[in-house]
Design a binder for these strands. Structure first.
Lengths: 221, 221
DNA sequence: AAGTAAGTGGGACAACTGTCCCAGACGATC
DNA sequence: GATCGTCTGGGACAGTTGTCCCACTTACTT
């Protein structure tokens, strides 16, 4: 029909592919299904992309980029670190509940990358970007609430991502938002327990006990 | 070649299918790939199973049954609840590290059930059996350690499964066993903090503070 | 020993997959 | 207005998929 620039066509195809994946899974995202969804012809697909594989790579890259930009953006700073964590995690859950299919697609794409030769690095990048985003969030939250973390930031970020991943998976299975909320609240409590007021750090003589790290395991990465 | 009873043939095919899935993913588990792995002919497949779909259902059912039987069996009772949780979670991680592909297959099968019409219930059953197994474990551990949980058992079980799921996923992505161990240790600490000595329950006057539930959210399911 | 049911092998089917090619139509440049 | 590179549509390809069918062999029953 109308002429479309290659770049835009690639973007359109990627978006169409994401829609198809949401409906029928990665295995259902054939070139024909994608071009049908996008309202194009097969030739247009192979004009825009060298191969189906190349398209999937671009799709994953696009998704990672978009995800790490939006995922944990809803942070409202405050002086109560527990309330802040709670709110952030609730925001995340709200995101999942609002569009569960999207989250299912994300998880399926991770699996896809893990099992596709030459794509494992993409999965790792995806998680690295998650860890980075959460780390930033935790630092911002800490300064806003005037606290300091008693655990290495990397471990903390991993703990958060682990929790959100697990909660997401469980929600996708039984769609029990109430139970998911309860788990997240518990997680927020546990995370908040790993924070210590900055005052205690500046004047350690006042409350040494508060700095006693509850863990007995290894702490450094 | 030799004659095999239908029942056994079904089991052989399911095992072969699991091997194929471990290598090439669910999408690669075609009837031909499966019978090739099992060393049979196509006709044998459709003699044992009405369809590929029926075989997948039996595979998932088999896997759920086997998983819930083995998964959390390595519990060594003791009087220190935290050490016990730690040991159990480490045992789980050891299981994952020893055979990551198996765990990857499990997660992929969950995704497969979630996206396949008429199979969502299987995913739910899978998780129900997990929750049941973990609940039993938590009860046994509590009696062995002489403690009581300050949180509904169902929430606790969900929290544990959420954690193990998340840790597994993260491990599958970056294969960082040390980081996974640290997260699990942290989780064990957090779980142990939700326990209270039975003595305190029997004689509440002695330490009322210990019973003060740290959560402020909803508690009942 | 004959008959019957259970199990086996190979070939065929239609539908689908990713990829490619070629005849054409469009837009801008000379 | 002719020309050239950019883009489009339809058709074709070889390969794979799930399923089915029919001739065949084996084991057990009577």
């Amino acid at each position: 029909m109308t002429r479309i620039a290659v770049g835009e066509r690639r973007a359109l195809l990627v978006r169409a592919a994401l829609r198809v994946i949401a409906e029928t899974g990665v295995s259902g995202a054939s070139t024909r299904a994608i071009v049908a969804e996008a309202g194009m012809s097969l030739a247009s697909f192979h004009y825009a992309f060298r191969s189906h594989d190349e398209m999937m790579r671009e799709l994953v890259a696009h998704v990672v980029e978009a995800e790490s930009r939006v995922a944990f953006a809803a942070l409202r700073p405050g002086d109560d670190i527990r309330a802040m964590l709670r709110e952030a995690l609730h925001a995340f859950l709200g995101y999942v509940v609002a569009d569960p299919e999207h989250e299912r697609v994300m998880q399926e794409l991770v699996q896809y990358c893990l099992r596709t030769p030459g794509m494992q690095s993409l999965a790792r990048e995806q998680y690295d970007s998650y860890y980075r985003a959460v780390s930033e969030l935790l630092v911002e939250g800490a300064t806003a609430a005037g606290i300091s973390w008693t655990v290495p930031l990397a471990d903390l970020a991993r703990l958060v991502v682990t929790t959100t991943d697990g909660v997401t998976l469980a929600y996708l299975v039984d769609r029990d938002a109430a139970a998911a909320t309860r788990v997240l609240d518990r997680a927020a409590d546990n995370l908040a327990a790993l924070a210590v007021p900055l005052a205690a750090v500046l004047a350690p003589a006042r409350s040494v006990a508060a700095l006693a790290v509850p863990s007995t395991g290894s702490v450094r990465s």
